[in-house]
């Protein structure tokens, strides 16, 4: 049977991992390839790279990170940040990524999802969606790295994206992100019920129980965390052992 996935996320700028990496335990913590390889060895099921600055000037650096990672890791990984065109996506896949995530580019031009899915297959098109609660029972889609409220409903947008050909949803709760108070279970539950494609929940992981909750009550197919793993507050192994003891199916 299929397992739930645990996914470390590497936020990068200018080819370095930025988000909360303390230079402890290993010398090259800021090097995404070193970190990626470590997570692979520790049992991560997949990796997510986000180029948070995503400027044209940094594209070359990103490409070399992608191709070096592809050489070093034995598990799938996705790359996102600033994807606007089919050609952007082709370049990243050609460098060795298995999937590409689209966010602002897809919201502004939903046809991008369909064109990428037709060209490369739905399995490599991940819709990344940043959600923030607007009022009761409603979450809005934010773009531009969480800076712009589009006013659009998250549930409607992910349903549409799935219909357009997205193969997976990477759902980040802006409200929970960085709080370590747990994933947004309610939001995630709504989304996993609304679409028939896998959902990766992101934002808020702080404890072992959080992972169990999002994968069971939230119905998420995968749980993503960044600083928690970078800081060594929790290891992937520890999370997996915990989930396994709770009879949640994981790869160990």
């Amino acid at each position: 049977m299929l397992t739930k996935r645990i996914i470390p996320c590497l936020d990068m700028t200018e080819g370095k991992v930025v988000k909360g990496v303390r230079f402890i335990d290993f010398r090259d913590a800021g090097d995404p390839v070193v970190l990626a390889k470590r997570y692979d060895m520790e049992g991560a099921d997949e990796l997510v790279f986000l180029d948070i600055t995503a400027t044209v000037e940094n594209r070359g650096i990103l490409m070399s990170v992608v191709s070096n990672t592809a050489r070093e890791v034995t598990i799938p990984f996705s790359v996102g940040g600033g994807i606007r065109t089919v050609e952007d996506m082709r370049m990243i896949l050609k460098a060795g990524a298995d999937k590409v995530s689209v966010n602002t580019g897809a919201f502004k031009n939903p046809e991008l999802i369909t064109r990428c899915a037709e060209e490369f297959g739905s399995q490599c098109v991940v819709l990344s969606c940043d959600a923030k609660k607007a009022e009761n029972e409603r979450w809005n889609v934010y773009i531009h790295g969480g800076r712009t409220d589009t006013g659009a409903s998250v549930i409607e947008w992910v349903k549409r994206a799935a219909a357009l050909g997205a193969g997976e949803i990477l759902l980040t709760s802006i409200d929970s992100d960085g709080t370590k108070n747990g994933f947004d279970v309610e939001l995630t539950r709504r989304i996993t019920q609304a679409v028939n494609i896998p959902v990766i929940a992101s934002g808020g992981a702080g404890s072992l129980q959080d992972f169990a909750d999002i994968l069971t009550i939230g119905g998420a197919d995968a749980a993503l965390a960044a600083s928690l793993f970078h800081f060594n507050e929790l290891t992937i192994k520890k999370v997996k052992n915990y989930l396994s003891n709770k009879n949640i199916r994981i790869r160990n």
Binding site: M1, L2, T3, K4, R5, D45, S122, Q123, G167, E168, N196, I197, P198, D221, A222, R251
Partner: peptide, 9 residues
């Protein structure tokens, strides 16, 4: 319900 199957089996 979810198709494709994506992940570790």
């Amino acid at each position: 319900r979810k198709i494709p199957q994506i992940g570790w089996n």
